[in-house]
């Protein structure tokens, strides 16, 4: 029982990282109907930028903020330069962002090398705390779970309670009609791309604190965020949360039962969901 709770908690904290990455992806898709395959690259880049800032300043929060801002701006530039023109051609956007990912991966390898690094965090926080029913549990994982929940709530409030959010929701429903009502959809698109990329960069710092940063992680996190949004339903923030929790839990449970096939079972979850509900758990039928 204790082990079960422990593994569940591990699954939830892992899901926290997955959610942070996937939320940006789902946000962009929700409004723009395009998928950016450079999302994993944004994650890794964010992690590296955070790593450098934290190493230089010793301030974790500054690192997270700086990484989010930098990656967000880069996302905006890529959107303006490469994507805006082809916004209606979802396939071409996917492929162009794939090209961006190829280049980004290679340049990061050239800059940061092939060995693993990790974003440093204060030694005072590297302790276990007593969680009822589980025993000693790493504080940092609980903090990351907390951060992720806060970000999730903020995103939901932002989408559901602000004027900008209502524009986004309207855009999700019908971007042409929204444009007809006088909203400058172009600016909204740019802003969403900024926000989505910034979330990936932020996730990179959070994830890079818990797990190593190295070439290859970009592909891994792209795949996991794709699985999360496919399972949860594209374009839905609550869907991304549900998808992340499912993927996190399934991967950790199978790591206990059949460690060798943890990854396969995780992906099998996606196949099952698709077979039953092609649009994902929270996705709207399209």
């Amino acid at each position: 029982m204790e082990q079960f709770l422990l593994v569940t908690l591990n699954g939830l904290t892992l899901a926290a990282v997955y959610f942070l990455v996937a939320s940006g992806l789902t946000l962009i898709f929700g409004l723009m109907r395009v998928i950016t395959l450079a999302h994993g690259t944004s994650y890794l880049l964010g992690g590296y930028i955070g790593y450098v800032i934290v190493r230089e300043t010793g301030n974790w929060a500054l690192g997270a903020l700086g990484a989010a801002l930098a990656v967000g701006l880069l996302g905006l530039v890529i959107h303006q330069l490469l994507i805006r023109k082809f916004q209606d051609d979802d396939m071409r956007v996917a492929l162009i962002t794939l090209g961006v990912a190829l280049i980004g991966t290679d340049l990061m390898l050239a800059t940061f090398g092939g060995t693993a690094t990790q974003v440093a965090f204060p030694a005072a926080l590297q302790i276990g705390v007593n969680v009822p029913g589980v025993g000693q549990y790493p504080l940092i994982r609980l903090m990351i779970l907390g951060i992720s929940i806060v970000v999730g709530i903020l995103l939901s409030l932002f989408i559901n309670r602000t004027r900008f959010g209502s524009i986004v929701r309207a855009g999700v429903d019908d971007s042409q009609m929204t444009a007809a009502t006088g909203v400058n959809v172009r600016i909204v698109f740019g802003a969403i791309f900024f926000l989505g990329s910034a979330l990936a960069g932020f996730a990179g710092v959070v994830g890079g604190t818990l797990f190593p940063l190295l070439p290859g992680q970009d592909g891994t996190y792209l795949l996991f965020s794709l699985v999360v949004v496919i399972v949860g339903g594209m374009g839905s923030i609550p869907g991304a949360a549900i998808g992340a929790v499912l993927v996190g839990l399934v991967s950790q449970y199978t790591l206990v039962i059949a460690p060798t096939y943890a990854l396969v079972v995780t992906f099998a979850l996606m196949v099952v969901v698709l077979a039953i509900r092609p649009q994902g758990i929270m996705g709207r039928a399209v």
């Binding site: 082990q3 422990l6 593994v7 591990n10 904290t13 892992l14 060995t115 693993a116 790493p138 994982r141 818990l210 797990f211 190593p212 190295l214 290859g216 992680q217 891994t220 950790q252 790591l255 206990v256 460690p259 060798t260 943890a262 990854l263």
Partner: peptide
Amino acid sequence: PVGTTDYATIIAQIPADTDAVYVGLGGA
């Protein structure tokens, strides 16, 4: 699997009466 980065669950499975743990992992 190679590329496993989250060991929390694996660590939880180490039996209490073991004398040592063999770590056959590399790199990251």
